[in-house]
Write a protein that binds this DNA or RNA. Structure first.
Lengths: 128, 128
DNA sequence: CTCTTTAGTATCCATTTGGAACCTACTGTT
DNA sequence: AACAGTAGGTTCCAAATGGATACTAAAGAG
């Protein structure tokens, strides 16, 4: 079958800005360890070393924490200060840009907190 | 090496409610087609049939749309009305619960819109 | 001389996610 | 008789994600 996109008569057009800000936002904070890492950095609100961050998050491997921190760093959400010592010392810190995420993340949390019971009730009913 | 979790002296304790509302929220709206699907349903704000929804989203396969709709349905975010006709007819619609997501999603979009330029500038600088 | 510490890399492997292409059922149309 | 249209289900496959483990460098402690 061909994959021609047939637009039916009843399909209403909708403004389609292909770079969707919601999707872009979700891409930043999705991934198994993004929120735990970000949360730790935000509530610490101070320099924190790699090892301490890893223990604070709990369960994250070095590989994943490094990858997540690199991502956040490239976005300017966290800063990274490396000291040329041995054993190595690297200090991470949430940036001002990173801190601006807090109110938005709080609103996510608030929605979830407000609707958790309803969601659970629905899930139970539909799990026939 | 053993995997004992050694808590160092400098690790400040943080309230660790293991069911994190932020993570739970993100789990609902992550996945490649969650936001596009939800967005279509919210702005339509009316009944919409499977095929029309699929064409409206654009690029999503039947399999993925079905899976996403089942997920939303089980959470009570969308409703599904099936008519025993041939050819089949199924009408989807955003629920009242689903609509309450809009302000929160708007706040995501707003953060992204406000900070997109800064994020892009950071990415370019760090892409050495 | 060996062990420990730190912040990573590198490898391998298992799981998850998502896309392409097929199939169905029943009716209406040509 | 063949084909289109709808809302999926099913199978196979490729890519992305994530976990476990081993390895590194250089200094200090015992």
């Amino acid at each position: 079958m061909d994959t021609k996109e047939k637009i039916s008569h009843s399909d209403k057009k909708v403004p389609d800005d292909s770079r969707c800000p919601m999707t872009d936002f979700i891409n930043i904070v999705s991934g198994k360890w993004a929120i735990p890492t970000l949360y730790r950095l935000i509530i610490t609100d101070d320099i924190i070393r790699f090892g301490s961050l890893q223990r604070g998050i709990g369960g994250i491997t070095q590989k994943e924490l490094t990858k997540q921190l690199r991502t956040f760093e490239s976005l300017g959400i966290v800063s990274r200060q490396e000291y040329p010592e041995m054993p190595p010392r690297v200090e991470y810190r949430i940036t001002e840009l990173g801190k601006t995420l807090k109110p938005t993340l709080d609103s996510l949390a608030q929605w979830m907190t407000e609707h958790r019971d309803e969601l659970l009730a629905n899930s139970r009913n539909n799990a026939s």
